[in-house]
């Protein structure tokens, strides 16, 4: 019964100079699924996430999102790099939320959320503004529309960043340690927004250290170490009964 998964990764390899950071990652994510990736720092989980929207180039393997190869076009058995414009079109379908928020500091919250639709999709400003307002309301920031990022707390900035990504109406959302740069008391408000998003059926890949979130919201949990997926499965099972020694040792440190 399984339809084509939204994300399919086969034997992804990636290296920086001679340092191989991904050593053959296989993974699928179906539509509506929430996949959480955990693992020690330097395990390649963030790099893998950035390969999915081609912020990083892969060196071996194949990666499909929504049925099309990411960053390449296959002609016969040869791969052709996609031109900048095509890569941009693929990225526009994939939302990404960063650890450091990366809001555009010269734009207000509203303008940040409008940036994608107006600059990339060339939507009329009024239409983009209306949707941006709706999104900011949904993440609980209806009263911060005209605030510049530096006037917002970390949690508020990250919620604007989520709204900014959602404004492109993406099919897939990538979260790269979205709460790691936040003060502990601000983590909850961001996780709440993500929880709601998952409930609404968004397909999400979340690199995180929040085991509680992974357990509660994740449909599947992947443990990565040293550039490979060591173990994966339903979060509750994996968190309570890890099979691999490396998983056990990691979980014993973070739980």
């Amino acid at each position: 019964m399984s339809p084509e998964p939204l994300v399919r990764a086969e034997q992804i390899h990636k290296r920086y100079a001679r340092n191989e950071v991904l050593k053959g990652v296989d993974l699928t994510v179906s539509e509506g699924q929430v996949l959480c990736i955990v693992g020690p720092s330097g395990s390649g989980k963030s790099t893998f996430l950035r390969c999915i929207n081609h912020l990083e180039q892969i060196h071996q393997g194949r990666l499909w999102v929504n049925g099309s190869l990411v960053g390449y076009r296959q002609v016969g058995d040869k791969l052709h790099e996609l031109p900048d414009r095509e890569v941009c079109r693929q990225r526009a379908e994939i939302g990404m939320v960063f650890q450091d928020f990366n809001l555009f500091s010269h734009f207000t919250a509203l303008e940040n959320v409008m940036a994608g639709p107006t600059l990339v999709r060339k939507e009329p400003r009024a239409k983009a503004a209306a949707y941006a307002r709706e999104l900011l309301e949904r993440v609980g920031l209806a009263d911060k529309l005209d605030s510049y990022p530096r006037r917002l707390s970390g949690g508020q900035q990250q919620r604007v960043a989520i709204a900014r990504a959602l404004a492109m109406r993406p099919k897939l959302m990538l979260f790269d340690e979205p709460t790691s740069a936040l003060d502990p008391e601000l983590v909850g408000e961001v996780l709440d927004v993500m929880r709601q998003l998952a409930r609404d059926g968004m397909t999400m890949i979340v690199v995180t250290h929040e085991m509680g979130f992974a357990r509660e919201v994740g449909d599947e949990l992947v443990f990565m170490d040293d550039g490979v997926i060591v173990e994966s499965g339903p979060p509750k099972e994996l968190l309570t009964n890890p099979r691999e020694a490396r998983t056990q040792s990691f979980l014993s440190k973070v739980l």
Partner: peptide, 11 residues
């Protein structure tokens, strides 16, 4: 990060 955020939106 600003370059990456812009790229991730498809700019």
């Amino acid at each position: 990060g600003q370059h990456q955020a812009a790229a991730s939106l498809g700019m």
